[in-house]
Simulated scan of single mutants.
Amino acid sequence: MSNAIEDRLNELGITLPDAAAPAANYVPFVKQGNTLYVSGQISNGPDGLIKGKLGDGMTAEDGARAARHCALSLLAQVRAACDGDLTRLKQVVKLTGFVNSTVDFTDQPKVINGCSDFMVELLGDTGRHARSAVSAASLPLGVAVEIEGIFEIA
């Protein structure tokens, strides 16, 4: 059976990371009927955690790259929740993005676009979603971005 999402990832030269284990007393995802709730995924790239504060040494573009890595981690959790079968992903419903930023930084939406744009690039209309993008005074482990998601699955 063809997997259009996996095929598209291959076209883009992207390999999803393994789904991260929880770092505290929570589960990485919860399935409720056809709704999948994925816990916040922190910005973590191939070289480790992407740390920093937007507006203090990090630009919106830097943050968007960090958010794109959150998108990969979200999809890795979706794949794990769907027993390795991304064809079960029917819709990205909602993303909530948290940006570690200074009080005067106001480009949180541009940062979270790194995740949103990737979801649409990869999934087309299936990747279009409702969204929130908010500032945080700090995030776990000093990361720049954390994003949680709600997905419809089969």
Rank of each mutant, 00 (worst) to 15 (best):
G57R: 13
F118Y: 09
Q108N: 11
N25T: 11
S116H: 13
S101W: 01
A23S: 14
P46K: 14
K51F: 05
A76Q: 02
A23G: 14
A66V: 02
M58K: 15
G57K: 12
D85Q: 02
G114D: 05
G48P: 10
A76I: 12
A4V: 11
G63Q: 07
N10D: 13
S39P: 01
G97I: 04
A81V: 10
I14A: 06
L49Y: 08
A19H: 01
R88E: 09
A80R: 13
N10I: 04
L75W: 03
A80F: 12
A60Q: 05
A21V: 00
S116V: 13
T106G: 00
G45Y: 10
A4F: 09
T102K: 00
I50E: 01
S116I: 14
A23M: 13
L72W: 12
K94G: 08
I5K: 03
A19F: 10
M58R: 15
N100I: 02
T15C: 07
V103N: 11
G97N: 08
M58T: 04
A21K: 10
L36Q: 09
R65W: 03
L89C: 07
P17C: 05
G40S: 15
N25W: 07
K53A: 00
G57Q: 13
G55M: 08
D56R: 14
G84P: 04
L36H: 09
K110D: 12
Q41S: 14
V93K: 08
T59P: 08
P28F: 06
G97D: 12
N34C: 06
M58G: 02
A81I: 14
V93Q: 08
A71R: 01
V111C: 04
I5L: 00
I112E: 00
A71C: 13
I14V: 10
L72M: 14
P109S: 03
A20E: 13
L75E: 04
M58W: 10
D107P: 05
G84T: 08
Q41H: 11
G33A: 14
L54T: 03
C82D: 08
L12P: 04
L16C: 02
T15Y: 05
I50C: 07
A19V: 11
G45Q: 07
G52Q: 07
L74S: 05
N44V: 11
V93M: 07
A67C: 10
G52A: 04
V93H: 03
G48N: 11
N113L: 15
F118A: 04
Q108M: 13
L95S: 04
S116R: 15
Q91G: 05
L54R: 00
P22T: 09
C70I: 01
L16N: 11
T96I: 15
L89S: 05
A20K: 07
I112H: 03
I112A: 06
L74E: 02
P28I: 06
E6W: 05
D85L: 00
R68T: 12
G63W: 01
A20L: 10
C70E: 00
D107M: 14
H69R: 09
L12G: 04
Q32V: 13
P17N: 06
T102Q: 00
E6R: 09
C82I: 07
S39V: 00
S101T: 03
S73P: 06
Q32K: 14
T102E: 00
D117W: 07
D83F: 02
F118S: 02
L54H: 01
T15R: 13
T106S: 06
I112N: 05
D56Q: 14
L95K: 01
I112C: 09
V111A: 03
T59Q: 13
A4I: 08
N44W: 09
S101V: 00
